[in-house]
């Protein structure tokens, strides 16, 4: 859909798949060195072709020219430890499709629909969006269906998630869980889930799970995950990863990285057809925590 919210038009143009494919084709004429692999991976992730992005990043890491922190595993789409133009840390991304058996995902959707009237705009506390809010999404915290699953998932896979994102070890202080439904033009402007010093108590790991029933009946609602300099609170003006909110998909990234949700369309006022998700924020205790993006001397960006 065409995004009418200010700022999203530019991001849509940058990630336009037709333009992206044309640029990728032009890139194929060039030598196939490591820098070209990195550039192709960046173009692919920006246009939302995550299979191609993963393949290009895997080839780049395998080339041996990536910085030491860069590693790929089964869940990796964007490896940690990389920097884009200007030395901005590339947002690492984990993605798992088909997380739940379909009947359990459907049960989660049914629970959301049963509690439709308890979903609230975070800012206004009302069932309708606050028109002045930069976050137009409805939230519901007291769901029970699969709540234990998400807690257990984090506990069982914390080590693997941490390694996939190259996060230093940390003690979990609390796990926040919320259901969300973004419909009728809802969106989230660019923000981070934690803008504090990494040594302080706060959110460390953001997991987002998307669910729904039947065929997708909304368009838009893509997650844009920006290359971010968390220390300075700045983002790359041009490099990000576009992730479609496919049903039964889980994504995870460090909470300090900025992200946004493009406006949803096509849902009308039908709650059941909205862009539904579970957001899970894993909080860490205060203490020593030195993430790779805070290194005093980040490696030089890969230049073609």
């Amino acid at each position: 859909m065409a995004n009418s919210q200010p700022g999203f038009e530019r991001l849509d143009r940058l990630s336009d798949p037709i333009l992206g494919r044309s640029l990728l084709a032009a890139m194929e004429q060039r030598r196939d060195g490591a820098s070209t692999l990195f550039a192709r991976a960046n173009l692919a992730r920006r246009m939302g072709d995550l299979d191609l992005a993963r393949a290009m990043f895997a080839a780049f890491v395998a080339s041996g020219t990536a910085p030491g922190a860069a590693r790929m595993d089964d869940w990796s789409i964007v490896p940690p430890g990389l920097h884009s133009a200007g030395g901005v840390p590339v947002a690492p991304l984990v993605l798992i499709d088909d997380l739940l058996p379909v009947d359990r995902m459907d049960a989660l959707h049914a629970e959301a629909c049963r509690h439709e009237h308890e979903f609230r705009d975070r800012m206004s506390g009302a069932a309708a969006y606050d028109p002045a809010s930069p976050r137009r999404t409805l939230l519901f915290s007291d769901f029970t269906c699969e709540r234990a699953f998400f807690g257990d998932f984090v506990e069982r896979h914390m080590e693997a998630l941490r390694k996939s994102l190259a996060l230093p070890p940390f003690a979990v202080s609390r796990i926040e869980l919320k259901m969300s439904n973004t419909l009728g033009g809802g969106f989230l402007k660019i923000h981070s889930d934690n803008d504090c010093d990494p040594q302080e108590e706060g959110r460390a790991l953001t997991l987002l799970y998307y669910f729904g029933a039947g065929a997708t009946s909304f368009d838009g609602g893509d997650l844009l995950l920006f290359d971010t300099n968390p220390r300075e609170g700045t983002v790359s003006p041009s490099w990000f990863t576009r992730i479609a909110p496919a049903r039964n998909r889980l994504v995870a990234f460090p909470s300090w990285f900025f992200h946004a949700v493009t406006p949803t369309g096509g849902t009308g006022a039908r709650f059941a057809h909205g862009r539904m998700g579970v957001s899970c924020h894993v909080r860490k205790t205060a203490g020593e925590f030195a993430p790779w993006w805070d290194a005093a001397s980040p490696p030089a960006p890969v230049l073609p």
Binding site: A26, M27, A39, S84, A85, G86, S238, P301, P304
Partner: peptide, 23 residues
């Protein structure tokens, strides 16, 4: 520049820096 890509997309000519990603 060495890292510039030139292409045609939907009747529009586009230049992009492979490094900065801007076009």
């Amino acid at each position: 520049a060495e890292d510039v890509l030139a292409t045609q997309s939907q009747d529009v000519a586009v230049l992009m820096s492979m490094n900065t990603g801007k076009f």
